[in-house]
Computed example of a mutant assay.
Amino acid sequence: MSFLLSPMRRAAYTSTSTRAFSTTRAAALARMTIVGRLGTDPEISESAAGNQVIKYVVGSSYGPKDNRQTSWFRVASFAPQGSGARDYLMGLQKGTLVYLEGDATMRTYDDADGKKQSSLSLVQTKVEVLKRPQQQSTENGALGV
C-alpha cells in the first residue's frame, strides 16, 4: 500500500519541508541579544594586545516580580579613539536601559584552586539606548527627567 498526496498537499508539504541555510559555518558565529540595564558606568582599559577597550556590565532580569532573577553580562567594545561610537558609549551611565547585540565566546579555564571554570565573553556589535535613568534634582529633592 502506497501513500500518495494530492498535488496541492504535495506542494504544501514540499514548501514546509525545505530548510534555510547560511554560508557561515555554524561554529563560527554565536550572537547574543540582551535588553537590560548598565550595572556600571563604562570604563576604558587596555587589552593584552595593547588596544584600548571599553568595558561595562549589563544586567537582565527575568521571572515573576516576587522571585525576580538577574543575569549579569560583561561586555567589551573596541570602538576606536576619537570615534563618535566611543564618545557615545562613554556618555552612558549606570542604570541606562540598553538593547545590545554582541558576539559571544565561551572559554574554560582552571582557577587558582585548580577547579574548572567557564567564562562568557561578549564583544559588542550594536548598542541602542532604550531609556536613560532619571536624574535626581537637587531642588526640593524632586526627580527630574
Rank of each mutant, 00 (worst) to 15 (best):
Y13G: 00
T14W: 00
S15T: 12
S15L: 11
T16F: 08
T16L: 12
T18F: 08
A20Q: 13
A20S: 13
F21H: 12
S22C: 07
T23E: 12
T24I: 15
R25T: 02
A26M: 10
A26V: 10
A26S: 14
A27T: 12
A27V: 12
A28I: 01
A28F: 06
A28K: 01
A28E: 14
L29K: 11
L29F: 09
A30S: 15
A30W: 03
A30C: 14
T33P: 00
I34K: 03
G36W: 06
L38S: 05
G39H: 10
G39T: 10
G39W: 10
T40Y: 02
T40V: 09
D41I: 08
E43M: 12
S45I: 08
S45A: 13
S45W: 01
E46I: 13
S47Y: 09
S47W: 10
S47I: 06
S47C: 07
S47N: 10
A48D: 12
A49T: 13
A49G: 09
G50W: 09
N51F: 11
N51R: 14
N51Y: 06
Q52E: 15
Q52V: 02
Q52G: 02
V53T: 14
V53D: 06
K55D: 12
K55T: 15
K55E: 13
Y56E: 01
Y56R: 01
V58C: 07
S60I: 07
S61V: 03
Y62N: 08
G63N: 05
P64H: 06
P64V: 02
D66K: 13
D66P: 00
N67K: 15
R68T: 15
T70D: 03
S71I: 11
S71Y: 00
W72L: 03
F73Q: 04
V75A: 08
V75H: 02
V75R: 01
V75P: 00
S77K: 03
A79P: 11
Q81Y: 07
G82D: 05
S83L: 11
G84A: 14
A85T: 14
R86C: 07
D87S: 15
Y88Q: 12
L89W: 04
G91V: 03
L92Y: 05
Q93A: 07
G95C: 06
G95M: 05
G95R: 04
T96R: 00
L97Q: 08
L100A: 03
E101T: 13
E101Q: 13
E101F: 00
G102E: 04
A104R: 02
M106I: 14
M106F: 14
M106Q: 11
M106C: 03
R107V: 08
T108V: 09
T108I: 01
Y109M: 05
D110H: 06
D110A: 13
D111W: 07
D111A: 04
A112W: 02
D113H: 05
D113M: 07
G114F: 02
Q117H: 06
